[in-house]
């Protein structure tokens, strides 16, 4: 059956007379609780695919079904951590998370419970200490963490992460990867994460979805990472299965689907 089914999805953008076919025939089935990484060259359509799952854009062809129901509009059951955090700068860290909590749990949780739940989710990403700061007053890594807390606080069926750590330094990135792994282990929610980083994909994912280059990109290969959880980055770095997976992804990206420089 599959928890989340993406069937024969195609997406063509039309602006005036110009048509750009970005995705063609994307087929993927994801299980509940699975962690899937999507990797591919810049501009191939990864964000477009994620936005389709989120319901932020509409598919031109094919369809997406989550838990037996067709996805045709965005909703809090598919929370997104955006590529550039997208916190609202006029709200505090607490206010950003609380907005989501209020919206999703109004009627189901009391005021005090919503307050507690907001703080709890800030705790998950260790950001409670900055609850009263505004996004402009905290670092990029902290903002990304708040973005994750906001998404987690919605208790989504699927958490969609669009290159959440793209703009961060290696240390902060490693720290947040650990945080995401820990949250995934604890909450067992389904996660789909776009990344540019091969090591990140291998470390975090159960399966790595590799996309061919656009236009009309599609899924070129899907690789299962046979690494037991909980995973440790130091152990994983020397693990033969991990090395093989890394090699396979690199081969896909740099030999078989090298980005043609002339296309840019």
């Amino acid at each position: 059956m599959g928890y989340l089914r993406i069937s024969r999805v195609g997406k063509t953008f039309e602006s005036g007379s110009r048509r750009t076919e970005v995705l063609r025939d994307v087929d993927l089935t994801i299980d509940r609780g699975e962690f899937v990484s999507i990797i591919g060259h810049s501009g191939c359509g990864k964000s477009t695919l994620l936005n389709l799952i989120a319901g932020l854009t509409e598919a031109t062809k094919g369809g997406i079904v989550l838990e037996g129901r067709e996805v045709n509009a965005p909703g809090p059951d598919r929370a997104v951590v955006f590529q550039n955090h997208s916190l609202l700068p006029w709200l505090t860290v607490y206010g950003n998370v609380r907005l989501a909590v209020d919206k999703v749990f109004r009627g189901r949780k009391s005021r005090a419970e919503r307050h507690e739940w907001t703080l709890h989710n800030l705790d998950l990403v260790q950001m409670r200490h900055a609850a009263d700061k505004r996004p402009g007053e905290i670092s990029g890594g902290m903002r990304q963490r708040v973005g994750i807390a906001r998404a987690l606080a919605m208790e989504p069926k699927v958490l969609l992460l669009d290159e959440p750590f793209g703009a961060l330094d290696a240390l902060t990135r490693a720290h947040l990867q650990d945080a995401v792994m820990e949250i995934h282990a604890r909450l067992r929610n389904t996660m789909i994460m776009i990344t540019h980083d091969v090591d990140e994909a291998v470390l975090l994912a159960d399966r790595i979805v590799m996309m061919t280059n656009g236009p009309a990109a599609t899924i070129g290969e899907v690789l299962t990472v046979p690494l037991p959880r909980p995973r440790d980055r130091i152990v994983a770095a020397g693990d033969p299965a991990c090395l093989r997976a890394r090699q396979a992804v690199l081969r896909f990206l740099h030999e078989r689907h090298r980005l043609v420089a002339a296309a840019e």
Partner: peptide, 13 residues
């Protein structure tokens, strides 16, 4: 920014 609109849409404001 489109990002703020997307946040609002995901939250179904």
């Amino acid at each position: 920014p489109a990002d703020y609109r997307n946040v609002a849409r995901v939250l179904r404001l």
